[in-house]
């Protein structure tokens, strides 16, 4: 039904225009994704404070039960370390060192995946039944949502690292992924920037809920 577009050719100006739009979309997309995440975790925080203040049947948190503290601290530290590594990597990336970013990225990915695994392990080692208190319920909810967040962050980072390897040859003569003006490189940079901000967001979420569940 669509008209044949075999001889359809975009002008260089149009390509440049759409490329700018795609870069902007990467920026808006990553920020909107953080917006989605913010409302997801805000809903969890709402549940936490709501059940805490309601304290139904005095079962918000009997005997101040706490999830395994060491595991929780480790998961939090791993999330924060991944975020720090990706931020440092992105900083080096902006300075032109793609290899530094790659090394930091792979290390961050490893730590993030470890955090993911530890979170699963922690959920199997809880000293309370999921339904024994409001605290227990929200903690299980946090575990599930943290898994989703970590999985998403790790997936994004991994795709970028894999893309970076494939990109290397294509942009080698054009100054590398950090400097190339090729469309693929520009979009790659936009995505790296978005991923870094997203990991920063995950780290903020991790510190907030770590404080809520283990410190308070």
């Amino acid at each position: 039904m669509a008209t044949p577009v075999a001889n359809f050719k975009e002008t260089p100006e149009e390509i440049a225009y759409e490329l700018r739009a795609a870069e902007g979309a990467a920026w808006i997309g990553s920020r909107s994704l953080i917006g989605v995440g913010a409302f997801i975790y805000a809903s969890l925080a709402f549940a936490y404070f709501y059940l805490r203040s309601a304290n139904q049947a005095q079962l918000w948190r009997p005997h101040h039960v706490t999830a395994p503290t060491e595991l929780g601290a480790a998961i939090f530290a791993l999330s924060a370390a991944t975020a720090a590594l990706s931020m440092y990597g992105a900083y080096r990336f902006r300075r032109g060192s793609v290899v530094d970013w790659e090394v930091a990225g792979w290390m961050g990915l490893l730590l993030g995946a470890l955090g993911f695994a530890l979170q699963i392990y922690e959920l199997t080692r809880l000293p309370f039944y999921p339904g024994s208190s409001g605290y227990a319920s929200t903690f299980v909810g946090w575990g599930a949502l943290n898994l989703v967040g970590l999985l998403g962050g790790c997936y994004w980072l991994e795709t970028l690292l894999a893309r970076s390897l494939r990109l290397r040859r294509a942009v080698a003569e054009d100054g590398g992924a950090a400097n190339s003006t090729l469309p693929a490189a520009r979009l790659f940079r936009a995505s790296v920037e978005g991923c870094t901000v997203f990991w920063g967001f995950l780290a903020i979420v991790a510190v907030c809920f770590w404080a809520l569940f283990y410190l308070v």
């Binding site: 005095q58 079962l59 009997p62 039960v65 339904g131 024994s132 208190s133």
Partner: peptide, 16 residues
């Protein structure tokens, strides 16, 4: 076989 209001320190509160 589980009593959610048992006196277990893990489970519920005996003071309630």
């Amino acid at each position: 076989n589980v009593d959610p209001y048992s006196k277990s320190s893990l489970y519920g509160s005996s003071t309630v």
